Simulated scan of single mutants.
Amino acid sequence: MRAVIVRSFGGPEVLEVAEVPVPAPGTGQVRIRVEAAGVNLVDVATRAGGLAGAGLMTGALPVGLGWDAAGVVDAVGPGVDGFAVGDRVAGLSDRLEVPSAGQAEFVVLDATAVARCDLDPVEAATLPLNVLTAAQALDLLDLKEGHTVLVTGAAGAVGGFAVELAAARGLRVVALAGDGDEELVRKLGASVWVPRSAPPAESVRQAVPGGVDGVLDAAVLGLPALDALRGGGAFASVIAGAMPPALRGARVANVWVRADGARLARLIPAVTPRVAGTLPLAEVAEAHRRLEKGGLRGRLVLIP
């Protein structure tokens, strides 16, 4: 089968669509015939060697790329209940060093990492990593109904889902986003929009005197976003190593996303998929270039 791998760290040119063995499902696993696979910033970081440099990978190569996969179950391993050949699913491949991952013609995942999903596979492939990250980051904040939360990067892939999920929890959402994104973030559920071109702390504190109760820092602003937080508030970072210091008694944590198929199944109907574009698997390097350029609304999706 064809799969996206890297044999050396570097720019988009090191990406390779290689022929690798078709994986077989083991106990508690299912194999998915992939119809669509999302492209995320973690793929860029893996390819460039950033994760290995941060000590999150051993650096052993080659390694497969792709966290998000959507398609059809085509084989079921022993001990799996609840899935059958032909089921339409989406799932999260959350291991960093595997021979092949979601960006491939087939992927094997633990059944616990997979959710039934009747969406178009292209839309479904934008969801697992980003929606689970948003939900698990909100869990870390542990805010109560009526509390205020600042979501930075609120029009982005993680931030957009965070706005929707926070509003559904009864939180008052302050959305920090681009100058052209006010209509979008308000449609997603934001009560207050703050342009990212303005100083974030001052703008947020004008809207919420005393500061917000929590910050979900999807844009990785760090200290400027922390300054919008009230004393003793909660701060969730979505990237390892990007956490600011716990000033003014803040409770600061980094979300380490984990696969959770059962929760993913509950979250899928609660969010709005956004597809920035599709490309064939062979054009994965172009997908990385577009992602690194920035400005996308939603996720790019590869079609094997």
Rank of each mutant, 00 (worst) to 15 (best):
M243R: 14
L129Q: 06
L296I: 13
A242M: 14
A115N: 01
A198N: 06
A135I: 12
E183M: 15
D213Y: 05
F235L: 10
V76N: 08
V14S: 10
A250F: 13
P244E: 10
D118I: 15
D260Y: 06
A115I: 05
G261K: 09
P224V: 00
G10D: 10
V131C: 13
L109D: 09
G50I: 11
G59H: 07
A207Y: 03
D81V: 15
G38A: 08
R274P: 14
D179K: 11
M1Q: 02
A218G: 07
N254M: 14
V208D: 01
A111G: 13
S8I: 10
V22S: 09
A101E: 11
P280A: 05
G214H: 04
L129H: 02
P12N: 03
P224L: 03
G210I: 12
G180Q: 14
L61A: 06
T27K: 14
G102I: 03
A155T: 13
C117Q: 00
R299I: 13
K144D: 10
L56N: 07
L302N: 01
V85Y: 15
V173I: 00
A285R: 08
G153T: 15
L296C: 05
P209I: 11
V72L: 01
G55V: 11
A111R: 12
P304K: 01
P224G: 02
L229Q: 11
V76Y: 11
P121R: 02
A259N: 05
T133V: 13
R33C: 02
G214N: 07
S197G: 15
A175E: 05
A134W: 00
L176G: 02
G214M: 06
A282F: 04
D181Y: 11
K187H: 15
G66S: 03
A240S: 08
A207V: 09
G64Y: 10
V17Y: 15
V14R: 09
V192C: 10
A52L: 00
M243P: 04
R31S: 04
E16R: 07
A135R: 01
A219R: 09
K293V: 12
V14G: 07
E13F: 05
V131Q: 09
A70C: 06
K293I: 06
L291A: 05
V98Q: 08
P121A: 00
V131F: 03
P25G: 00
V108M: 04
A45Q: 12
V98T: 13
P209F: 00
V107N: 04
P280S: 07
A168S: 06
G156E: 08
A75Y: 03
